[in-house]
Amino acid sequence: MSALLNHRLAVPAVLIVLVALLPLVLPSSFYLRIATLVWISAFAVIGLNLLMGYAGQVSLGHAGFFGIGAYAAAVLPAQLGVPGIFAVVIGAVASALIAYLVGRPILRLKGHYLAVATLGFGILVAMVINNEAWITGGPDGIAVASLGIKKLLKSAFGLKVKTAELWYWIAGAMLVVGAWVAVNLVDSPTGRALRAVHDSEIAARVAGIDVARMKLVVFVVSAVYAALAGSALALFNGFITPDTAGFLHSIELVTMVVLGGMGSILGSVVGAAVLVVLPQLLTMFHDYEHLLLGLLMMVFMIFLRAGIVPGLRALVAGRGAA
């Protein structure tokens, strides 16, 4: 059982089954939308989890990359006539470049300097988006032109799909591919080097690992994940506001990582699912919504300290042994 769970393809396989079967039990496009939001968030969280769970670095400005992806998909087609799909690629490349420039000097230092630098970076991105209203639409947000996939499907194959269904499959596919890439990265020499860095930087350095370079690679990768997730959200919603790039969203992403379990790809999905679905469940408590959300997170953190997925796995393993 545990050998099977630890296999490299186990996580993507679980996700494929989940994504494929879920629509059968979801009664309406409202639920499809929630699931789509979970997949998109989970995609960004997987990237951040690589950074936090494997390289041992925290980014407090990941929503900045998310925002760059989102606004690339919104602004480039509207202002410069760039086709949507290229805009997504440009957003991802721009995020990678910025992550490289920010990360290169900082990741040579030991300790949590990256957290402070990314904190500033995230706030900067949000400020630019808020202030440069002539490009970004400012605090009121901006509409995002659709990719035209729906039209294409209709004219080429005569297929008529709802936006909610279409994006459920796109986001689901993104998640599976994202998880697959992440699992492979973790299982590669880079991943093993990273884990060594996470355990002890000095030992890793002695073993001949270029610690700074390893951290930089992961930081860039995680920025690309966030940017792609941002583009997906923008295209899915058709409208985007600056709080997507805001500090609170950064914190939300970090919370998803910690809640689901650092260093667990499946945990990233669970963490995203909990934080996207819970507010919907708690609406009936209305006035106490935030209180209950906080309380539940405290309960999770007290009883499943390593995060939900690793915590439950340890519980199951513990019981098996006893």
């Binding site: 409202f30 919603n237 709080d243 997507t244």
Partner: peptide, 20 residues
């Protein structure tokens, strides 16, 4: 429903009002 200032959340609640 309370969406805060989150546009994506507002859209989710809008879908919920319509569908559910």
């Amino acid at each position: 429903y309370d969406s805060g200032v989150d546009a994506s959340k507002a859209r989710t609640f809008a879908t919920r009002l319509v569908e559910e």
